[in-house]
Structure formats: structure tokens, C-alpha cells
Design a protein around this nucleic acid. Structure first.
Lengths: 138, 138
DNA sequence: CTGGATCCCAATAGATACTG
DNA sequence: CAGTATCTATTGGGATCCAG
């Protein structure tokens, strides 16, 4: 990674890391489903392959969006946690969810959740970020 | 396109259309630089290839995010305009820009612009949407 | 001029099987 | 359980070409 950036545009810099089919789905699973382990990510509805998952987790770690650590109590389990930069992607997920909810035929229940988060404005997001910090940042 | 969706999650439905390196850069150029023509998109700093550009423009049209029309006054020029669904991607661009501005080394001037738009909250976005509607929706 | 198509080949991503 | 290995299918950049 870190092939010299193509431009200093903030939108471009973001897309160079999270601009693909899978990355934000991994973050979504961490944020909304509390997933922390490799196998959990594999089991999402969209069906990411283990190869792609491993690669994305590594670059997300290199880019400072999540951390990897071995759970000492549980032996083999590797734990993935969000950093502050990762938690800061929550507004991106929220706007993306709001758009999908409005303009595509989304699953009803999930669409309602997305709408609520977006409608709450900054306050709802900040509250959720605080909760995520407590859970992820050790 | 339109291979059956992988899940009804609103975030996933959005990513199935705009989840790639280039699509949101095209929208960005329409929104912030007022670009409307094929050759204009080709000239962005990031250097999209004509092949990729043509493909993205077509699927964006199929997905109802932009429209294509021939400029009758100018003969050959093809004009691309955003639909309401396209304009509704503005909040996604704003959150993406805010993240890049905060967590990567972005170009100073562009970063300030991104921050202002995000900081303004809903009001700044709605104002800009209204301007875009006037310009794009015929 | 313009919006695009075509061709070549390098990089990516999926499926499945397998390992420490 | 967290990943690799391998093989194959698809995508994507880059240059060039072309028709209106």
C-alpha cells in the first residue's frame, strides 16, 4: 500500500482506503453487530471470501483504522478493535445507509435503523461514538 | 449489472453501486467542479481511464443517479446531469471529505472546504442541494 | 474537436482446499 | 480458529483508434 497518493483531495484520500466493495461492510459489522473475530466477519450475508477479508483487515490495520491483538485469556482468538479513526467512519456509514434506505429497496427493519441514526443528527452519532470508544479503545 | 443483490442492508445496497475507487470521484466533480462532459471528467487529478469512465457513467445512468442528454445547441456535446438521487449523495461526499480531512494529510484548502461543509450541519448541505437542483434537474 | 470502443496485459477477487 | 495456497474469472489501466 501507500503507493503515492493520486491527489490531496480529502474525498480521494478517503476513497483510496475505504473505496471498495468490502471495507465498509467490515466496519459496519464491527460497529453495528459488535463483531471482533475473523470467523464472524466471514459469516455476513454478503459472503466475503477469507482471502479478501484477510487482506482488508491487514490494510485497515496498516492504515490505523483498526488494531489486532491476541486474546490472552482465550488462547488462539484474535481480536479486532476499532481505533478512533475507525470510529470516526460512523458518519460515513450513516449517510451511506440513509441513501440506500431512501433510494433502493432496502430491508424494512434495517432501513428504519438507518433512518433513525441519520435523523438524530449529530447528537445520536456522538452518543454512539462514545459507546464504541468504551467498547473498542483499550 | 443488477445481479441480484447480496443483502437488503441499506449500506450494502449503496456500496453495490458506489462502492469503488471512481464513482464518487465522478459525482464529486459534478457537485463541486460543475463538470458535465466526458472530457472534463477525464482531466481530474486522479486520472481515470476513458474505459472506466464510460462504464461508470453508464451504470450511474442505469441506476438513476445521473442522466445523459445531447446538447441540442452545441451539436455533439453530451451533457451529464445529476438526478435527485445523485444530489442526495452529497452528504456521503461531505462525511467522506471530513474523514479524509481529519485523518489523512489532505491538501489544506480542500480540507478547509470539506470541514466547513461538514460543520455547517444540515443547513449548509440543504442549501447546496437546492443550488444543485437548480443547475442539474431540467 | 467530441464521446466512446477496442485491444492488450497486469492486477484483483472469488471458490475451494488446506495449514500452524 | 486465523489465516494461506492455488487456481481461475473478472476488472482495470493505458494507449490507441474511430465515427459523427
Amino acid at each position: 500500500m501507500s503507493t503515492r497518493e493520486k491527489s490531496g483531495c480529502p474525498i480521494n484520500l478517503s476513497l483510496e482506503i475505504i473505496g471498495d466493495r468490502w471495507t465498509l461492510l467490515i466496519i459496519r459489522d464491527m460497529v453495528f453487530a459488535g463483531k471482533k473475530h475473523f470467523r464472524e466477519f466471514l459469516q455476513s450475508d454478503e459472503g466475503i471470501s477469507s482471502r479478501t477479508l484477510a487482506e482488508r483487515l491487514q490494510t485497515l490495520q496498516e492504515e490505523g483504522i483498526l488494531t489486532r491483538s491476541d486474546d490472552p485469556t482465550h488462547g488462539l482468538r484474535t481480536v479486532y478493535r476499532l481505533t478512533e479513526a475507525g470510529i470516526d467512519l460512523l458518519p460515513v456509514l450513516a449517510t451511506l445507509g440513509a441513501w440506500g434506505s431512501k433510494h433502493r429497496k432496502a430491508d424494512d427493519k434495517l432501513a428504519r435503523n438507518a433512518d433513525e441514526l441519520a435523523a438524530g443528527g449529530g447528537a445520536a452519532l456522538e452518543k454512539m461514538k462514545a459507546a464504541l470508544r468504551a467498547e473498542h479503545i483499550v
